[in-house]
């Protein structure tokens, strides 16, 4: 198995993803199978091949520096779970 339950814990922390302790073994097995699937990439000779991050060879389109957005706070904050005085609220972050 390529990944251990401890590995899963570590990656889950990186992704801030709550995983139940009981699910760790199963996930480690699943992810190891997924890695087995992709393992054949390692055998491919990619020397000198440019990595392809975007399908189109298009260049970036840019916009003019114009402010077209106006205050939409009430609408945009409608889905927010916790608000006060226009701020989004989260548990106190200790600096």
């Amino acid at each position: 198995m390529l990944l251990t339950p401890d590995d899963i814990k570590q990656i889950a922390h990186l992704a801030r993803l709550g995983i139940e302790e009981a699910a760790l073994d199963h996930l480690a097995a699943d992810l190891s199978t997924m890695l087995d699937l992709v393992e054949q990439l390692q055998a491919v000779d990619t020397e000198g091949v440019e990595p392809m991050a975007h399908p189109a060879n298009a260049s970036l389109l840019m916009r003019d520096d114009i402010v077209t957005e106006s205050d939409q706070r009430d609408v945009l904050q409608a889905p927010a779970p916790a608000l006060q005085d226009g701020y989004f609220l989260v548990p106190r972050v200790i600096e």
């Binding site: 389109l61 520096d65 957005e69 706070r73 945009l76 005085d85 701020y87």
Partner: peptide, 26 residues
């Protein structure tokens, strides 16, 4: 400005939004 009055859907990172680069920044 008052909090979050200059934060658009894009700035809030709402689902589905996309960035478009400001030419003057470049």
């Amino acid at each position: 400005a008052e909090p979050n009055t200059q934060a658009s859907a894009v700035d809030l990172g709402l689902p589905g939004v996309l960035p478009v680069v400001n030419r003057d920044v470049v």
